[in-house]
């Protein structure tokens, strides 16, 4: 019940908009999110169910990056 993809808002007109992923566009319902053109939204069944929080995304990726570094360090120590 969870198939949803991150798409970029390319047009907004009231509660409706158009979002894009890899060159594919679709009309989406924006009633549930406060998203503007340029924002990334999570789209499920033609609806935006949440805005993608860029800052959190970067934090998460940073977390993995540092984990990788530590991991490589440990692996280096072990050998």
């Amino acid at each position: 019940m969870c198939l949803a993809v991150p798409m970029k808002v390319v047009k907004r007109e009231g509660d409706k908009g158009v979002a894009e992923l890899e060159g594919v566009t679709r009309e989406v319902a924006l009633h549930f999110v406060d998203a503007q053109v340029g924002d990334y939204i999570l789209v499920h069944a033609g609806f935006a169910i949440q805005k993608v929080d860029e800052e959190s995304a970067l934090e998460t990726l940073e977390l993995f990056r540092s984990m990788m570094e530590e991991g490589l360090l440990e692996a280096g120590d072990a050998s």
Binding site: H31, F32, I49, V52, D53, S56, A57, E59
Partner: peptide, 18 residues
């Protein structure tokens, strides 16, 4: 929460309200 980029503590109030 390992999915912070789209999940908040309280979710989506507008969606829940509807």
């Amino acid at each position: 929460n390992a999915y912070t980029r789209v999940v908040t503590d309280d979710g989506n109030p507008a969606a829940l309200e509807c």
